[in-house]
Design a protein around this nucleic acid. Structure first.
Length: 340
DNA sequence: CAACCGTGGCG
DNA sequence: TCGCCAAGGTT
């Protein structure tokens, strides 16, 4: 009995995580569960742990979060990546307050209508916060199930059979614990490489283990090479302050505060796109950064005492740059721009 | 369906 | 050093 064996293992080995209800308690707060699930999308537990605590202290309820200023929320999310999550987080909190009286929908279908809540998150919140039976499938569950049933097709073709198999082992009772147990198992035992099968409570029911090569499931999807792109980042300084802009809501680093940049191209550019007339100096500093689907190298240009910059922006005190909420690539550029 | 969208840690 | 990977969602 896979679910019973897994739940017994979970009762002994569950990770203690701040967004989980204390052992023996059913007091999961839907707001905290939802917030943690959004933060955990494609983001490691170790990264989320301190940021979750910051958010929950600063915005203890969905009403408090819904009342946050956009700029404050975006700055608080800086460094976590996938910034559409932050925009959707705010839109979702406001929808819950305005359209649902401040209470999260308690069904998978109701949750699924909220911004930033997809199939996985709707199922996870329904199961963990509301005790609903829901089939929760994330990357951990995909791997565990592909091995349990020795599903050999490559992703994403393997998703429908994986989901069908997950459906057959999801219990009616304790569906939230079952989902978290599957994720704990995938994270710590049924790992992508070198799975620890000798520690696994499901070893006896695992077709992948029986095959002798459990680590080959699921077959990986082929990944495209990352192209190299280039651009210029502008450090514009006056009276101990630097000129910052806000990026458009859509696209890369959307909605985030940033240093001005020119357009990006396939080859090292010059000063096109400078935010003001000034005695620009190419510093020779290069800022390298890797995004999900391309590499970027920014050449750092620097100037002081310019004319009034073109367009919208703000002079930000250099001594307080750590409070500006810059995405990592611009935090790196700013640190080097200040020294160059 | 596939492209787009960040970042940090680890082997 | 570098590729892989993570509690995915949107278009």
């Amino acid at each position: 009995m896979i679910a019973a064996d897994l739940l017994a293992w979970y009762d002994r080995h569950a990770r203690v995580l701040p967004w989980r209800a204390p052992p023996g308690s059913n007091a999961a707060d839907p707001y905290a569960v939802w917030l943690s699930e959004v933060m955990l999308q494609q983001t490691s537990v170790a990264t989320v742990r301190p940021r979750f605590a910051e958010f929950l202290e600063r915005w203890p309820s969905v009403e408090a979060l819904a009342a946050a200023a956009d700029a404050d929320l975006m700055a608080a999310w800086a460094g976590l990546g996938y910034y559409a999550r932050a925009r959707n987080l705010l839109a979702c909190a406001r929808a819950v307050v305005r359209e649902h009286g401040g209470r999260f929908p308690d069904t998978e279908a109701g949750l699924r209508t909220l911004p930033g809540v997809g199939d996985y998150t709707a199922a996870a919140v329904a199961a963990i916060a509301f005790g609903r039976r829901a089939v929760v499938v994330d990357a951990n569950v995909e791997r565990v199930v592909a091995r349990l049933f020795a599903i050999a097709q490559p992703l994403p073709a393997a998703r429908p059979p994986i989901r069908a198999a997950a459906e057959t082992i999801t219990p009616e009772a304790r569906a939230g614990d079952f989902a978290q147990a599957m994720m704990d198992l995938g994270s710590g035992v049924c790992t992508p490489r070198a799975p620890k099968c000798l520690l696994c409570p499901l070893r006896g029911d695992c077709a992948g283990f029986a095959s002798g090569t459990p680590e080959t499931f699921p077959a990986p999807k082929t990944k495209a090479a990352k192209p190299q792109r280039h651009g210029t980042v502008f450090w514009l300084e006056r009276n101990g302050a630097v000129w910052l802009v806000r990026r458009p809501d859509k696209g890369l680093l959307g909605g985030m505060r940033a240093l001005p940049t020119g357009a990006w191209s396939d080859a090292p550019p010059a000063l096109a796109g400078a935010p003001a007339d000034a005695a620009w100096r190419m510093t020779g500093v290069r800022v390298d950064h890797v995004f999900t689907h391309f590499r970027l190298q920014l050449a750092l240009a620097k100037a002081v005492e310019p004319s009034q910059p073109d367009g919208e922006g703000e002079w930000w005190p250099i001594a307080e740059l750590d409070k500006a909420g810059l995405p990592t690539v611009f935090a790196k550029a700013a640190r080097q721009g200040n020294e160059a």
